[in-house]
Every structure is written in structure tokens, then in C-alpha cells.
Design a binder for these strands. Structure first.
Lengths: 264, 264
DNA sequence: TATTATTGTATTTATTTGACACAATAAAAC
DNA sequence: GTTTTATTGTGTCAAATAAATACAATAATA
């Protein structure tokens, strides 16, 4: 296991005193690749447990800024689409001290080199956590694990492992929110590369809605909304007609989203 | 000004030690009366300032339970429709100590009989607050002011006074959420009395959507959804045809809401 | 008994949707 | 070079939905 440097330890020990003691945030960072919706997960060094990327809020920091900071630390990305979706306040979220997960975190931190008892107790606090979700261009993100984690990876939402605490519930809520808010969120613009085919866009909608859409009707509806620019054809190398590439007319797209784009 | 009893003071002073120190909640409690959407507001004893009913969360209490407790304390109502809509985490929410509102609260509490300096400092804390909204049958609610307030009143959402802190923003967000979630919320069942006319239902929708709906088309659409029971006519005493009274078939209504009732 | 305002329902027209047809086409197979 | 293949862009057509309007029914009044 990688030990942390003394300065990493000192940094976190300093920060703990400046964090709000009972509030955290967790980010459901979604991307889209190989026609799959993916979420960024962390895997702990000590026992391989999976969790959502999260963090704490400095006493003099806006909750929103803290969410942007966590997103930046995990992906290197700034100024992205980031939306709060729910705050989880079950008193059972404080179950750490008496249960395996709490003991395990303290062992983990001890092994990493933490010695300050105040800091070792930190994760025993009850945290009310606010869930944020971000939609990012997966090709531009550079996943970075945090100090508790060995890795930071994109996982398909169709095959999510058991996550710590209530993180599976948090992720589930984020996906539900995404579906309900679908018509008001810049899904395509956030998740697809600059240029994409109509099939890319359709598969994205299908993976969010979890149901197939009829190809030619999808194309007709989308084109009628008139927020796409058509570009050159994409020669795919396959033995069939080549599709056009499209990009978003961002102004028209955002104007339409204000009142919701009707799909469902 | 009414002084509080010694036991009321002792109660709150005891409770403060058991509250989470940086989290609060505020309730946007909505009712419907005289064809107007109304919200329950409190008016402080000391200076007549208006605010949303709110409260704090006990260290061993679920956030949701705390919201139900506040709702019950202000309206006497239990087990109602209550939904979280947003958490407000601006660091400026902690501006109390240096600004007029903070000084004013301490003066207020001193005049009410509070002496414990820990308690007088309580409102200087930075609170991240979670907004809940409730939809209630206004005729069944019994508004009760809290210990800081002289009155607890229903105000039309069309004429909201200046509220303390960011409470106008919180209320605005709740109404926006209500509009966007309209098709998924039991608006009619929660806000109307057991029996109502089609006009009552239409006016309710119009006051939420803020736009007129065509009468006969509204009636046709609603009846086609088949979740209303028709009862006897209501003789209004006016020189025209008497409307039928309707009530909800609650099972069918809730089944439809799961997938959203299309209106907008 | 005629008048009035509102209600319940029907009609008419335009628009949207879902299902499917089909020619166009880029590359591979022959 | 011709045929085959899979996919794309567009068209069609019937069914469903929506918006605007018409109109008879009716409870109370004049």
C-alpha cells in the first residue's frame, strides 16, 4: 500500500478543523462512452471498497463551490454542468463508530500514516450529505483518486458494484432525477463530443430512458427542433451509407431547454 | 410583547445542545383557498419581519423526521405530502453576527428572556438549510406561531412581503419546483377539499401554471384520465347550470402520477 | 315565460405520433 | 466491375392528440 507523504497528511489534518463537522457532499459524475452511460467511482486502498467521489465543505465556502472543487479534484475539469439533486439526512448515516466500516476507516487512516486522534475520529461524525450530479465529456476528464483511494474509474451504470454506506441509493436517485429532468438538462451537449452522429444521440437517449426509440421518428423529431448543425459525412469504414456528423447550436439548444424538450 | 415562560426558555436552551450546529430546514407550506395559492408565513414578535417556518435537526433525528416535526408544530397536521426540493448552502447565510439581522435576533431573544450566552450565539452559526415543501388542505391546518413569532398566517403567493435572509429565494425555488414537478405531484388531492368542482381544479392548475387553460378542453382531458368520481350537483344559487362535484379515486390518481400526468 | 350565465358535451380542424416503406450509399464480396 | 450488405435519410399514411369553437342543457332571476 502506498503511504501518503507527510505533507499530504499535514494538509488534511489542517483542513479538518476548517470543515463543517456535519455536512458532506457526494458527486455522481456521469459520462458517456461506447454507447454506455458511465459513472466515476473510487476504490479504497485498504479493502477495495467502492464509493462515490465526495468531500467536505470549508466553513467559509459555498456548498456549490465545494461541489465544483471536488469535481475538479477528481476530473481536472472546471465550469461544467453540475446540479444538486437531493440531500440525504438519515441519522443512520452516522453509524460508523459501532460498525465495521467505521473501524475499518480508522485502521485504514492509521496505516496511511494519520496519528492525530481528532482526525482519526473525523469519520465518526454524522454527516448530512448533499448529492450533486455532473455530466461530463468523458474524453476530456482525467480521473484522479483521492488520498483514501487506489483508483478512480469509469464504471457502466449497468454494472455497479456494492458501494459503501448509502452510496448505491444516492446513485439510484441521481439516475432517477436524470430521467425525470431529461427534458430540461443539456444531456447531449454535456455528454457527447463536439461532433456526433444521430445514432450517437439516439443511443444516449435510449441509455438514459432505458427503452428503445424508433430510429426514423427520433431523427425527424430532433431535426424539427432545429438545434443541430449538420456537417460533413462520417466515413465509418463499414459497408453501408455514411451518416452525417452534427453539432449543437448552443443558443437554440439552451433556449429550448428552458421550457423543456418534449420526448417522453 | 409576550414574554416566554421559564419552561419554554429552558426547553429551547436544553435543545440547542442536541441540535446539529450547522444545519437547518425551512418549510414552504402551500395551501389553496378562494382560488389562490397560499403559503404559510411567520411574523416575528420584535420587528414584524416575515419568514418561512423552519427549525433545526436533532443529532439523533432524520432530516425528514425533523421536517415532519416542524410541519406538525406549525399546522397540527401529520403524515402529509412533504417533499424536499433544494438545499441552500451559500456561505453568506452565516452573515448574522456582523449584520443588523444577527444583532436584532440577539436583542429579540434577550427581550424574550434568554440569558445563556451559548444560546444567544446560536443564530450566529452558519446554517446550510434544506428546503421542504408541503401541500396541505388549508381548511384542516391550525397555524401556530413558534416562540420567536407573534403570528402565523396564510399569504397569497401573489403578494409575498420581503422575507428575512434568502427566504424569498427559497420560496421562489419551491414554486419553480412545483411547476416543473406538477405532473408528478398529488396537487389536487393535497390542496383541494374532498369534493370540488371542475372549475376549482382548473383554477388550481391555472394558479400554479400561471396561465389560463381552455375550459372545455381541460374538462375533456381530465375526465378522460378517469381518476375522478362524479357526485351530486352543487347548487350554487347562481342563475346558471349547476356544476357536478367530483372527488379523487385515490388509487387511480396515484397510479397515474407515477408516470406523470401530461398537461403542459 | 323569457333571460342570463355557466356547464357538459360534441364537432371540426390542425398537429403530432408511431409504424413502416424505400431509395440512397459506402464498403465489402464476388 | 458488378453484386451484396447494412445503415442512413426521407417519405407516407393511419391513428392519436390538441386547440378552437359551437351549442344544447340548466338553475336561478327578471
Amino acid at each position: 500500500m502506498d503511504d501518503l507523504t507527510q505533507s499530504q497528511i499535514a494538509d488534511f489534518e489542517d483542513q479538518v478543523a476548517d470543515f463543517l463537522p456535519n455536512h458532506s457532499l457526494d458527486c455522481v459524475i456521469l459520462g458517456y462512452e461506447h454507447q454506455q452511460l458511465k459513472v466515476l467511482l473510487l476504490q479504497w486502498k485498504i479493502n477495495g471498497a467502492w464509493c462515490l467521489p465526495g468531500g467536505f465543505i470549508f466553513k467559509d465556502e459555498d456548498l456549490t463551490s465545494a461541489a465544483h472543487r471536488v469535481l475538479r479534484e477528481r476530473t481536472g475539469l472546471r465550469q461544467l454542468f453540475l446540479n444538486q439533486f437531493h440531500t440525504f439526512g438519515s441519522q443512520k448515516r452516522a453509524a460508523h463508530p459501532t460498525e465495521r466500516e467505521g473501524q475499518m476507516i480508522r485502521e485504514h487512516m492509521t496505516q496511511l500514516g494519520f496519528r492525530n486522534p481528532e482526525v482519526l475520529k473525523w469519520f465518526d461524525n454524522r454527516f448530512i450529505t448533499t448529492g450533486y450530479f455532473a455530466l461530463v465529456d468523458i474524453s476530456k476528464a482525467q480521473p484522479q483518486p483521492d488520498f483514501l483511494s487506489a483508483s478512480c474509474e469509469w464504471k457502466s451504470v449497468d454494472s455497479i458494484p456494492k458501494l459503501i454506506l448509502d452510496h448505491n441509493e444516492i446513485l439510484g436517485r441521481a439516475l432517477e432525477y436524470l430521467r425525470i429532468q431529461l427534458n430540461y438538462l443539456p444531456i447531449g451537449l454535456s455528454l457527447l463530443p463536439k461532433k456526433f452522429t444521430m445514432q450517437d444521440l439516439q443511443k444516449l437517449y435510449e441509455s438514459i430512458l432505458q427503452r428503445p426509440l424508433e430510429r426514423s421518428n427520433f431523427q425527424r423529431k430532433i431535426l424539427k427542433l432545429n438545434f443541430l448543425n449538420r456537417h460533413e459525412k462520417q466515413m465509418t469504414g463499414a459497408a453501408n451509407k455514411a451518416p452525417y456528423l452534427y453539432s449543437f447550436n448552443e443558443k437554440k439548444y439552451h433556449d429550448l431547454l428552458e421550457n423543456g424538450i418534449g420526448f417522453l
